[in-house]
Write a protein that binds this DNA or RNA. Structure first.
Lengths: 232, 232
DNA sequence: GCCTGTGAAGCTATTCACAGCT
DNA sequence: AGCTGTGAATAGCTTCACAGGC
């Protein structure tokens, strides 16, 4: 009885925060990961999976997997584990927008082009539909299978297509200006590859993917590992 | 008294793990970031900086900056803040290896090439000196300014040059095999761009830079932001 | 026996708040 | 007055451990 009451209360709280319950950034990342693992399993014709199997593939603990699955609102059976198909459906219902979503990319340099081809055809409901660059040499051409326009056309394009997601692959010096432009164009989420910490209003989500920082971290911990070995 | 004893114990533990005290992954990331901010400041001729200034640029709190600086073994003055030059020197002494370090990249596809040109000339003490690929079309050529060899030459090359750091930009299906090869070749740190959770011995540090996951996170939180706005 | 779901415990990271200094 | 350095408090995330089920 008491448990039921508690459950209702927490759902009420959830409702107050609008839509889906408050799920942490880390959890969302892992859920995206589980989806990939599950897609593999489905391809192999596997129909059921236990939390510890998913955990081993994802390099996390089994409790973590179970918690994450609960937080996305799905559940399994103690006997058969989780149904691969059902879990995939839950994850898609949870992560994806109801309709496929269009994404724009700003900055058609080496990295920008690589990312255009990387994402082309990968996630059908998350497609880069246009690229933008300030270099007149690059505009009004198709680059890596993606139409490229001048940055001055971005606000209009974003408004017409209801774009909410942008990828920034311009040099650091131009990154803040481009982020501002994206925000003015109505974007609500930015994936930033430029080595710059972007400023944006609180209602815009920014994910920084800083390759230089990542490489320096690797170098540091690789060195630590070598040193630890040396004195053993 | 008791507190002193506890302190000594924890220092002893730190010592057992060798060399530099245990600094967290997140802290290392931020220190790399501070270095970039400080390099900018130095370029502008600024000589002193307060924790709150560095914090604003790095999008963290001032306490965080102070804690991080302490954990790298530097300190400032309550009057003038931190000396830009001194702090830069401390960070380099802390983060960088005594000698410039060589890095290899495996997988010379679109992304691999983009990363070769991205890092070329960026950090002088962290240079990609060779790329490897299994495609015979690509080997024994210079690609994006970097010599490219067959993957079978990797172990020999790594041994000869004492390589400890590798970047993986192969497709997901080949990533684990390449990681294994890198580990066999003596690598101690891997920066992985492939959408696969790599397995490696505990003495190898792996940083996963998963662009698909990152984009899905952005899409999810962008949608959350829009929804929160809609019901206001 | 071996699974899931979950309260409670444990850990790590961050922030608060203030002593100490100039 | 306004900074740094830091103990203490807080928040957030992960793991433990076990009830409940078949």
């Amino acid at each position: 009885m008491k448990e039921y009451t508690l459950c209702i209360v927490s759902q009420a709280l959830v409702a107050r925060f609008g839509g889906n319950s408050m799920v942490s950034e880390r959890t969302i990342g892992r859920i995206s990961l589980y989806r990939r693992m599950l897609a593999d399993l489905e391809q192999q014709g596997i129909r059921q999976v236990f939390s510890h199997e998913l955990a081993a593939k994802s390099r996390v603990t089994a409790s973590q997997v179970r918690r994450d699955i609960i937080s996305l609102g799905s559940s399994g059976s103690p006997v058969h584990g989780y149904g691969v198909k059902e879990l995939l459906a839950s994850i898609s219902a949870f992560l994806d927008a109801p309709k496929p979503e269009a994404v724009v990319l700003v900055g058609v340099g080496n990295l920008g082009r690589a990312i255009l081809s990387y994402f082309s055809g990968r996630r059908p409901n998350l497609t880069i539909v246009a690229a933008f660059d300030s270099d007149p040499q690059k505009v009004n051409r198709t680059i890596s299978g993606c139409p490229c326009y001048g940055t001055d056309e971005l606000p209009g394009f974003a408004a017409r297509h209801g774009i909410r997601i942008g990828i920034v692959t311009v040099p650091a010096a131009a990154a803040q200006a481009m982020a501002d432009l994206l925000v003015r164009s109505g974007i609500r989420g930015i994936l930033n590859f430029a080595p710059a910490m972007l400023r944006a209003p609180a209602n815009v989500y920014i994910e920084h993917l800083d390759m230089t920082m990542a490489l320096e971290k690797v170098a540091y911990f690789a060195r630590q590992a070598s040193q630890r070995e040396a004195l053993r």
